[in-house]
């Protein structure tokens, strides 16, 4: 019996996401620190074939659930499949990537397996043989290191904390774990995935650069007039040319729900910060946004940060950004777009 079980799921194309591969690296790393073995369990369509693609990861055993019922993410079937894997493997430590699918079903699986669960883990360490996990509380305000004595212990790993595992494919020789699904567990039908109408303007985790637009874009400019259309063209032009992901401050999307004229392609989906998301990108460029703490906590995982703001005393200038340009974002972004061609 392995000491660690890593649970993965396949995507709709039957392959593993970047987050899944990263969690393999985390598992390999932890396993060597604990000096034990690990197994991998895979849920989803094509789980067996997918297991073969990571056959060289060092797992002592592979398990799969590839019933039709788990082809698409559904809580009731996912939770049952994940519980079955945890129970089958009998591992003390269960790791899984914190994907939307697992963030949804793993708490229930932990409950059914009589396990403890912690999520949004950003680091794992072993000190004097004790496994210690790091995670944020109060939305990236307070960083804690914690451990638990009780087992099994399920830990959902944040994306981006480790490079993706790379290794040889092979024959995983996965054991299929049989799971029976009752009608009561199939009351929910998956209809499919809907992309927002304006797919270019959403948060894209794979982009190297996050571009954040603040409420300043929709305020009166130096000439006393509003320039919503100009703002819109500049931002959309930039996103396209720089291949950037689009985020916004809360005040900008709040203006939207107040019915004020604003940037039509923005929604709460773009909101970064305390009540929004905490995306992970190598670089972030903030524009027309003051950089207050509730917004800046959403930048916790942005490595290089630059801001364009008219106020030399804005929050960004107080140690929250690496570089702050005191300038008119309309002028700067127009020129940037020109240079990007």
């Amino acid at each position: 019996m392995a000491d660690i079980l890593l649970v993965l799921h396949t995507g709709s194309d039957g392959s593993f996401s970047k987050g899944a591969l990263e969690s393999i690296a985390t598992t390999v790393d932890l396993s060597s620190k604990l000096g034990g073995s690990f197994a991998v369990g895979v849920i989803g369509a094509g789980a067996g074939a997918a297991a073969d693609t990571i056959a060289g990861c060092g797992a002592e055993k592979f398990y799969v659930v590839e019933d039709e019922a788990v082809a698409a993410p559904r809580y009731s079937s996912d939770v049952k499949a994940a519980t079955a894997l945890i129970q089958k493997a009998g591992a003390q430590i269960v790791l899984a990537p914190g994907s939307s699918r697992f963030a949804r079903c793993m708490p229930g699986a932990a409950y059914r397996a009589g396990a403890q669960i912690d999520t949004h883990i950003v680091a794992l360490a072993v000190e004097a043989g004790v496994l210690k996990a790091q995670r944020w509380y109060y939305r990236q305000r307070i960083l804690t290191t914690l451990s638990r004595a009780a087992r099994p212990w399920v830990l959902l790993i944040e994306g981006g904390i480790q490079p993706a595992w790379q290794g040889a494919a092979g024959v995983a020789d996965a054991e299929s774990v049989a799971v029976e699904f009752t009608d009561a567990e199939l009351r929910t039908t998956i209809k499919g995935i809907e992309s927002p109408a304006t797919d270019a303007q959403t948060i894209r985790p794979d982009a190297a650069l996050l571009f954040v637009a603040g409420a300043g874009w929709t305020k009166k400019q130096a000439d006393g007039a509003y320039h919503i259309r100009d703002a819109s063209n500049l931002i959309q032009g930039f996103l396209k040319k720089a291949g950037a992901s689009l985020g916004s401050s809360k005040s900008l999307v709040d203006l939207q729900s107040d019915g004020q004229e604003t940037l039509s392609f923005m929604s709460h989906m773009n909101q970064v910060g305390q009540t929004g998301t905490t995306p992970r990108h190598a670089k972030g460029l903030s524009t027309c946004c003051h950089g207050e703490e509730p917004h800046a906590v959403g930048w916790r995982f942005i490595n290089e940060r630059r801001a364009i703001n008219m106020d030399a005393n804005c929050g960004w200038a107080q140690g929250k950004a690496d570089v702050v340009y005191i300038a008119n974002a309309f002028e700067v972004i127009a020129k940037v777009n020109e240079l990007l061609g």
């Binding site: 939307s100 209809k191 959403t202």
Partner: peptide, 13 residues
């Protein structure tokens, strides 16, 4: 339901 990449998972129950 919100899933990765600014997309939605659509279901009926």
């Amino acid at each position: 339901e919100r899933i990765e990449g600014g997309q939605y998972l659509a279901s009926t129950c």
